[in-house]
Structures are given as structure tokens and as C-alpha cells.
Design a protein around this nucleic acid. Structure first.
Lengths: 266, 266
DNA sequence: TCGGCCTCTTTGGCTGAACCATTCAACACA
DNA sequence: TGTGTTGAATGGTTCAGCCAAAGAGGCCGA
């Protein structure tokens, strides 16, 4: 964790020729706010501060740490961005401990995808790797509640008819439900980030034509059945077919229309 | 992206009974630093600010935005934590645009893993989903340079002998090399985060006994061969066997010794 | 007694001015 | 030519203070 800290100031020694002298390595002087942030981060991650714990108010932290308020605030801000703290203003507010979860993961994944201009094919490849595994796990571990959620999402997808936005929402809902049924937090996080990004990239009217919609509904139904029957082999196989088919279709449209990654905002 | 912003202050309207009146939704007042951060973030992600671009110095941003320096600094800090900016002090320093990449992803994944106390089995399951796909891609896309890297890592692993730390380093190096050969940035990011976390969790002397080390070396050799021959089927199959075997062995040790996730620090 | 209103307190959000520390470039000097 | 010095640019930190939101508690009228 330490080595992953933000870059600190680095002081370079001056090179000197001649007889051997005491040698100093380049040393780094950490920033005060990073030090405080690191301290609090460790105490959160180590479990000393549990979810919901309220940190002392800023002015009290200033007293206790001997730092200025601006510095303390920067440290809190760092942890807020890392989703380790939630800060609420007003009386009764303050900084509350919050363990980072799916949201945090999905957020970073989206940042990286946009920042690196990751290709749509890469997203599809990644999904082809992950989602069949999710389906297999879902078939093994699903509860009745999970199943109900899948059925709901599927019903919504079928009912969407020509309302493409609703169709896409239901689609993403179903995929997330599959991941959740697998009960693996990490895979859930990866998948929800992926779904959102792929959804944003394929939110194109002419792509989601009636044919595709019909095929999608059919595939979802068959995968849901496999999960219902706890047949993880079939779930995995069918999911693989489904996502590969979708990727091929998307690639086809892409070649035809030169569609590229779109700003998720829209 | 907007909806993923940090929580802003929310002002609730007062409920009033009686005749219909103009209705106002609860509205949120964003924080100044978040606004500035969001603006800069968009301009970076949209490509307007390219990698390495220097933002204006803080004092100039203060002039241009009409905000105070503390606020500007908080905004910059936010983007620094998101790995979108790199900030260097001193003359010739400043805030430089930096697109977030693998480290950023790996960092967040580690935070989530520690924060959520994700189980070691979950990590293994995730790896079982992702790494065989990486191996398959690697077999299809490997360059000679990739192959050289794999051979290097493998040679190092074999040469490690009883130096367990060196063995583990070489091991992680080889796994990362496989991912890199697959040329899918997203999978590379996921895998490097996973490798690090799994490595941290299984860094236990009694686990990495001579038998395991021998089996690992053998598996790596066979997978490397498949990648060399561009046989993606074999690469995938063998990688699956390898990581599943590793997971089973780890689970065995876990059951025996009650080993749990260890602080990555150590 | 109860509901509404006011005021006070606590808390984060923000500002402005000032000083420190690091770095680099220009310049003077041997 | 090289070397030490000085000054300017830039981020890092502090201090003192005000504003705004949100509870808490008391006061007053119905």
C-alpha cells in the first residue's frame, strides 16, 4: 500500500566525484495531508474504524494533529475521493467511515476506460471472459430471491417492446442480476462497471433493432432457465454464446458505421 | 459520469399542505471544488487536454476561476487522487495531465478488496474466470518480445530454487507477462491487481513448499509452450488447470491452518 | 399540552493574505 | 570554462475569519 501512495516530493542528492563519502539515497518528503490521509486510511482498512464511525470534527483534528485546517481538509478530501469517507455538512454532520464497494470500483473502471480510450472490442473480450463465469456461479448459488429478480428483469425486457431506452435499462438490470446471483463481490463489481460502459457505447438506435432485441430476449430466457435448474454448465455455455453473439453483432455495426466509444454522459 | 459525482449538499423543501403550488424538487448544491474538478476532468477525458499538458499554475487558476486558492487546490487534489493529474512542486512544476492506467485500476481494486474484506476464494474464482482468457489472447497475439519476457520470467522462477521471495516475484512477473501479451488493457489491469492481491494473501512460507513450486514451474512451462505455438485452445485449458489447481491447494492450506487475508503491507 | 417558530450552536465550505520550501535559470565571478 | 550565487516561479502550509446548513432546545400562542 505504501508504495502505491501518491508521488511525494523527491530531493535529489548532488553527484560528487572523488573519494568515497557517506552516500545518501534520494529521499522523499511526504506531504502532510498525505501522511494524515494514509494514517486514517490504514485505520479504516485495518478495521479499527468500522463502517459508520464518525471521525472527530475538522477543528478537533486540527488540534489533535497540529496541522492547519486546510491540510486536514485536504486529507479528508483525499479519503472522500477514495470512497473511504463520506462527509456531510451541517450540525450532526462530519466525516463518516464508509468501506468502498462496487460503486467505487465501477467508477474507477469507467475512468480508466474513458481515459485510456479502451476499445469496444476490449470491453467485449473482457466481458466474454467474465460473464460466463458469473453465470456459472449464479447457477450454483442462486437463491429464490435472485431468481425472482432475474424473472422481473426479463419480464421488463420483454414488455419494453419498441421502447429502446427501457429495453436497455432492463437489459443491464438482468445482466447485473446474474452477477449478483453469483455472490462474488469482485466479479459483481467488474461486471457492473463493464455493463455500464458497454451500454454507454452501444446506446445506438440503429444497432438495437427488432431482430437483436428478439434474440437477446430469447438468450436471456434460456440462460435464466439454466440458472433456475442450477445447471452451471449450460448457463456458462449459453452465456458465452450470448455475449459472443452480441460482440459480433456490435463489431459488424462498428465496421459499417464507424461507431466509437461515446461519452457515457449522454 | 455526473451521477457518479461525490455526494453534494442536498436541500429539502418544506412540505406544505393546501392548494397546488409550484413544486420544486429537492435540489443539490455542488461544492465549488467538485465543480472545478468535474470541469477539468471532462476536458481531460474528452481529449481536449492531452497527456502531459500543463495546467495553469494555481494562482492563475485562482484568478481565472474566481475561487480561492484552497478551493482550487482541493480540486487539483481530487484529480490527483483519481490519477488524472500529476502535481510536481517547485519551479517548472505544476499540474500535468496524466491519463489513468493500470496502476490506477489496480490501486482501487486493492482498496476494495481490503475494504470489503473480500474472501480469498472470491479472488481465486475471479482469477479462474479471467486468466484463462488472458492466456488464450496471449497465444493469439503474442509478439517475440512477449515470448522473451515470458521465458525470462520462467527462467527466473526456475532459478529461484529455495528463495521463496524470489520465486513469488518471478511468479507474479510471469502472470503479468501473460496478461500483457494478450494486449487487452482492461484485462491487464484486472489481472495485475488480482495477482498482487492473491500474492499478498498467499505469501506464506509453509504453503509454497517444494512440491507446489515444482508443479508451478511445470505448469508455467507448458503454458508458455502453448503460447509460443500460438495454440490458444491449449493455453486456455492449461491455464485453467493451473489456476484451479492453485486455488484448490490454497483452499486446502486455508482449511488446515485458518489462514486469512493478510495485510498487503507486509 | 401541543405545534409552530425562533435562536443558538455545531459543523463543514470558502476566502484572503501571508510565509515557507523546492527548483530552475540567469548571472556574476574566479 | 566551470562554479557559486541570487532571484523568481511554483507548490505546500498556516492563520484568522466569515458564511451556510442542519439540528437542538426553548419560547409562545392556540
Amino acid at each position: 500500500m505504501q508504495s502505491a501512495e501518491h508521488p511525494s516530493r523527491t530531493v535529489r542528492g548532488r553527484a560528487t566525484a572523488g573519494e568515497p563519502r557517506p552516500r545518501f539515497d534520494t529521499l522523499t518528503v511526504p506531504k502532510a495531508s498525505d501522511v494524515l490521509a494514509a494514517e486514517v486510511r490504514e485505520r479504516i482498512l485495518s478495521g479499527e474504524f468500522t463502517e459508520g464511525t464518525a471521525l472527530p470534527p475538522e477543528r478537533q483534528l486540527v488540534e489533535q494533529t497540529g496541522l492547519s485546517r486546510a491540510t486536514v481538509r485536504e486529507a479528508l478530501r483525499i479519503l472522500e475521493v477514495e470512497r473511504l469517507l463520506e462527509i456531510r455538512p451541517g450540525r450532526g454532520g462530519g466525516a463518516f467511515v464508509h468501506r468502498p464497494g462496487r460503486e467505487s470500483l465501477a467508477n474507477t473502471v469507467r475512468l480508466v476506460i474513458r481515459g485510456q480510450r479502451i476499445r469496444l472490442e476490449d470491453l467485449h473480450e473482457t466481458r466474454e471472459a467474465i460473464e460466463p463465469a458469473c453465470a456459472a456461479l449464479a447457477a450454483r448459488r442462486r437463491t429464490d430471491a435472485d431468481l425472482a429478480e432475474l424473472d422481473d428483469a426479463h419480464a421488463d425486457l420483454v414488455a419494453a417492446g419498441d421502447d429502446i431506452q427501457r429495453f436497455l435499462r432492463a437489459n443491464i438490470h438482468w445482466h447485473n442480476a446474474v452477477a449478483r446471483a453469483g455472490e462474488n463481490e469482485l466479479l459483481i463489481g467488474f461486471m457492473s462497471a463493464l455493463s455500464q460502459s458497454i451500454h454507454a457505447a452501444t446506446n445506438i438506435e440503429q444497432f438495437m433493432d427488432a431482430d437483436i432485441r428478439r434474440l437477446t430476449a430469447r438468450a436471456h430466457a434460456r440462460i435464466t432457465e439454466a440458472i433456475r435448474d442450477r445447471d452451471s454448465e449450460a448457463a456458462m455455455r449459453r452465456m458465452t454464446r450470448h455475449v459472443c453473439g452480441f460482440a459480433r453483432a456490435a463489431a459488424e455495426v462498428d465496421r459499417r458505421d464507424g461507431v466509437d466509444l461515446i461519452d457515457p454522459e449522454n
